[in-house]
């Protein structure tokens, strides 16, 4: 647990005002919360100074007033999930493709499934929804139900 404790202390001292709720859930699993304004700074520091070179994925979670974008970043077996709180009224976040070029499709998924705006994301094909998908339909938002798009499906999706 030495590595975990060291990282926790480093996060708390370097980003006292920016990062909150740093916790060690179990060996090799850390969680921390930050705001959308400062998260790039934290990710950059983790990547450049702490050896977190692997972004496993970005998970979007709809928790009502906020969307949570979870950046699962790993340094070997050590995995830190950085929870970035993004207001759901205006879900805009900066791209991390300048730090992790492999993040492009994960960010496109946030755009398609949550209606997020990712500033700085290079142009390219959408992912994963089809080209003809109607505007303003974001399937992973809690308010979205399959019946919104396919009224004939109502009552069939429930068991």
């Amino acid at each position: 647990m030495e590595k975990e404790n060291a990282l926790k202390t480093a996060l708390e001292t370097n980003f006292a005002s920016l990062v909150s709720d740093v916790k060690i859930a179990r060996p090799r699993r850390l969680w921390a919360t930050t705001s959308v304004a400062n998260f790039k700074e934290v990710i950059n520091w983790l990547n450049k100074e702490q050896g977190f070179t692997h972004l496993s994925t970005i998970t979007g979670v709809d928790s009502g007033a906020n969307f949570e974008f979870l950046y699962h970043i790993a340094n070997g077996g050590l995995m830190l999930t950085l929870k970035v709180l993004v207001p759901s009224a205006n879900p805009t976040a900066a791209t991390v493709t300048d730090i992790f070029p492999g993040a492009e499709d994960y960010e496109r998924e946030l755009v398609d499934m949550f209606g997020a705006t990712i500033t700085g994301l290079p142009p390219g094909n959408r992912y994963p929804l089809p080209d003809g998908w109607p505007e303003g339909q974001y399937p992973l938002r809690k308010s979205w139900k399959p019946a919104d798009l396919y009224p004939q499906e109502e009552n069939k999706c429930q068991k």
Binding site: T57, T59, H72, T81, G102, D105
Partner: peptide, 27 residues
């Protein structure tokens, strides 16, 4: 990689699957 968020009921609040091929397509 799987992420699961439970809310105390018998259904998950959110579940995320990231399969290995997804990570490798970027290359």
């Amino acid at each position: 990689m799987h992420y699961v968020k439970a809310n105390g009921t018998e259904k998950p609040e959110r579940a995320k699957v990231r399969a290995p091929t997804m990570a490798n397509f970027a290359s």
